[in-house]
Amino acid sequence: MDIRLLFLCAAGFVGAFVDSIAGGGGLVTIPAYLLAGVPPHFTLGTNKFAATMGSFVSTAGYARSSKINFRLLRTAVPLTALGAALGVYSVLRVPQDFLYPLVSIAILAVGLYTYFKKDLGQVNGFTEITTKKILLVSLVGFALGFYDGFFGPGTGSFLIFIFIRAFKFDFTNASGNAKLINFTSNFTSLLMFAFNGKIDYLLGVPIALFMVLGSFMGTKLAIRNGAKFIKPIFLIMSFAVFGKLLYGMLF
C-alpha cells in the first residue's frame, strides 16, 4: 500500500467514525482526497462510493438497535433519493460557490443553538406518527437529499438537528434516523457518479474497507453511550464544518 493510499484510508476511517456518530465525515475525507491530488469530481464520486459502504454499516447498526423509525421515513426515503439524483445532476453542470455563505451561517446557527440549549436532545420526546410529520420529514429528505448530492458539508448535522428540534428525538434516535436519510442520499449519489464515470475504484475499494470499520466502531460507541457522548462530537463537527466553509470562502 503506497503512502497516498494509506493516508486516504486513515482519513476514511476517521471520517466514517465521526460521521456515524454526528455527521460531518466529509469534512475529513474530501480535503484528504484533494490533498492527495484526486480531481474534484472524482473526489466527490470516489468519496461517495467509500462513504456509502460505511454509511450502510452504520445504518444497519442503528436499525438493529431500533433507533430508526421506518414508518415515519417511509415516504422520505424515496424523496431523498430523488433529491440526491437531482443534486448530483446539477453539481456536474453548475458551480457551487454561491452556497458557501448560506450554509456557513446555517451551520453556525445550528452549532450555537445546540451549545446554548443545554437540554437539547437529552430526552426522547417523540410520540405518535402524524400525516403532518410524514409530510415534513419527506420535505426535509428531498431538500437535504438534493443538498447532499449537490454540495454536502453539514448534511448529517442538519439532519440530526432537525430530527431533534422538529420531531423531539434524543441524540441517539436522531442520529439513527438521520443516518438512514444520509445513506439514501449517499447511495443515490453514488449511482449517479458511477453512471457519469466519476469514481476511482482502485482508491475507493480499500478506502471503503477502512470506512466500514470506522462506521462500525463509531455506531457501537454512539448506541452504547447515548446523547452525552454524541452531543459534544456533534458540536465539534458543526463548528468544524463552519470553519472549513469560512476558510473556503475567504481563501
Rank of each mutant, 00 (worst) to 15 (best):
L108G: 07
A84W: 05
L79E: 09
I107P: 08
Q96E: 08
V88D: 08
V103T: 09
S90W: 06
V91L: 00
V103I: 11
L102T: 14
L92D: 04
V103S: 10
V88Y: 03
L92K: 02
V88M: 09
Q96K: 14
G111M: 06
A85F: 03
Y89R: 01
A84E: 05
I107N: 06
Y89D: 01
A106E: 06
L108D: 03
A81T: 10
V91W: 00
D97E: 09
D97M: 12
G87R: 02
F98N: 15
R93F: 06
P101F: 02
I105A: 13
V88I: 08
A85N: 01
T80A: 08
A84G: 04
P95G: 03
A84H: 04
S90Q: 01
Y100T: 07
P95K: 06
V91Q: 00
L86S: 05
L92Q: 08
R93E: 05
V88N: 07
P101E: 11
A106R: 09
L102M: 12
G87P: 01
L108N: 08
V94E: 03
R93D: 01
R93Y: 04
T80F: 01
R93I: 02
F98H: 14
V94N: 02
L108V: 14
G87M: 05
I107T: 08
G87C: 06
P101W: 07
I107K: 02
V94M: 05
I107S: 07
S90I: 05
L112V: 15
Y113F: 13
V103Q: 10
L102W: 12
G111R: 00
Y89S: 03
S90D: 00
I107C: 07
Y113L: 12
D97H: 09
L102F: 13
A109V: 10
A106D: 07
S104P: 06
S104H: 11
L92G: 02
V88C: 07
P95E: 03
G87N: 08
A81R: 04
L92C: 02
A81F: 04
G83L: 09
L82E: 10
L108I: 15
L79V: 15
R93V: 04
L108K: 10
V103R: 04
G87V: 12
S90M: 01
Y100R: 13
L108C: 10
L79Q: 13
L82C: 10
G111C: 07
A81I: 10
Y100W: 13
P95C: 02
L86Q: 01
G83K: 12
L79G: 11
L99V: 14
I107Q: 07
L79I: 14
V110M: 05
S90N: 01
G111H: 06
L112S: 04
L99T: 14
G111L: 05
V88E: 10
S90P: 00
A84I: 02
P95N: 07
L86H: 01
Y89I: 04
G111D: 02
G87W: 07
I105T: 14
T80D: 04
Y113M: 13
Y89V: 01
V88W: 03
P95Y: 05
V94C: 02
Y100Q: 09
L86F: 06
